[in-house]
Design a protein around this nucleic acid. Structure first.
Lengths: 246, 246
DNA sequence: GAGTGGTCTAGACCACTCC
DNA sequence: GAGTGGTCTAGACCACTCT
């Protein structure tokens, strides 16, 4: 054993092959890699694990290891939440990705609020709030899960309670209702994905992958929090950009 | 094999034992864990890998597996960059952690700028810039590496070029020099750590751990970028909070 | 020197995909 | 059914820490 573990050496060679374009689309099978590099298939898998953690490849059980040609999505705040985007009929997320985006699995329901959400929205703990959950695909790759929570006394019975919230999205409707969000706080943590997130974000395995957990609180001019949005992002799919003044 | 892999089951039990306080300080050795759960030591290690990715434990080769009792650091922007912090003689990072913070390995030098830094600072590519690098420990745990780049025509020969930049830190000195930073852009990505970062941040292994890479551009009232700060954070050590208006 | 985490082998079985 | 990724065993060796 040199100072560097074998699986790191194999990973480095595969990384170079991907960067140079020698490997595109798909990698040789683990068995072939193992033979080629003179290692066990377990070690070949460890090498692939490294690349997967870097977002360079994605693995599909029973199928193969595939190269991920994917440019990270740049997600700009606060520009993306400005009025100009909504005015043109675009929702928040369009600003980052344009036509490559697809929103699927939209589910709207009323659910009891968690204590964190209840406190933020100013309702009794356990009381129902409007819940909008959905999944974002970019170039058919799932990159984000999101669930919004809104107080029923504002959003109940409005267009917001429909799966299609209309042009400009939820925030445009809130503005029309006299509750335009103008101030935002985003709280960001990196953590290991749970099994459900591994599946819905196509992360392959919980080992070696992390997600970014963002909770955004949206408040109106008068300081009322009118939406809590919990987002789970594939950590390798994004660049987050924040602009602010001292 | 049930639907859930064995190493996940073992990880779940260890996680519960840590949460309940049954395991504190230190875990039994891998050999003991292997025997107790009736698995190979390799599998016991996989379980520990899961916990390490979650930031629950840290491993020390030749020594043991240790429980990480650590509350995440909340890093608030833009408050932390405001004048009030500097006025009281505190530097930026103090706002998040107070007396638990230690800054070590401060190295100040002049280095040729990378193309990204050169472009931002408005100097010729390859020209020298002032470079301040340092490492942050909180409760003796390394949590962040940072390197600042400043143009020599502003910072050269000033207090900023000393390892101790004085009360209020670099930004206070820039303000005194008539180049107070007032506008900031932070660009954040999650990525796998390189071997140097694994060592300096005590991440144990590059497998299963991610870092947050933040590049901050600090600009003055007249729109000149006077500092680029590249930070590498242990992803499991932080909560990042951003406040902004639409 | 004893004990520990980290890496690796050779071989096995499983779940899954693709033809 | 053949091939693929994912998990697991039993045993080995190494680098390191702690005494």
């Amino acid at each position: 054993m040199a100072s560097e573990p074998t699986y790191q050496r194999v990973a480095a060679e595969l990384r170079a092959a991907i960067a140079s374009g020698d490997l595109d689309e798909r990698l040789p099978s683990l068995a072939v890699l193992a033979q080629r590099y003179g290692v066990t298939s377990d070690i070949a898998r460890s090498a692939v694990d490294v690349l997967r953690a870097e977002g360079l490849v994605t693995t599909r059980r029973g199928s193969g290891v595939y190269v991920r040609r994917f440019e990270r999505i740049t997600r700009r705040s606060p520009e993306r939440l400005g009025r100009q985007y909504r005015a043109s009929g675009r929702a928040v997320q369009d600003s980052d990705t344009g036509p490559r985006l697809r929103v699927v699995d939209i589910v709207v329901s009323e659910q009891p609020a968690s204590s964190e959400v209840a406190e933020a929205l100013g309702v009794e703990a356990g009381q129902s709030v409007l819940t909008r959950s959905r999944r974002f695909l970019v170039d058919n790759r799932p990159v984000q899960l999101a669930t919004s929570f809104l107080p029923l006394d504002i959003a109940g019975g409005t267009r917001i309670a429909y799966t299609d919230a209309g042009p400009g999205g939820t925030y445009a409707r809130l503005a029309e209702l006299g509750h335009e969000p103008v101030r935002f706080t985003e709280r960001l943590t990196a953590r290991a994905p749970n099994p459900d997130e591994v599946e819905r974000l196509d992360l392959g395995s919980s080992i070696g992958s992390l997600v970014l957990d963002i909770v955004r609180f949206a408040s109106t001019e008068v300081g009322r929090c009118v939406e809590v949005n919990q987002m789970t992002l594939d950590a390798t799919a994004y660049i987050l950009e924040y602009d602010f003044m001292a």
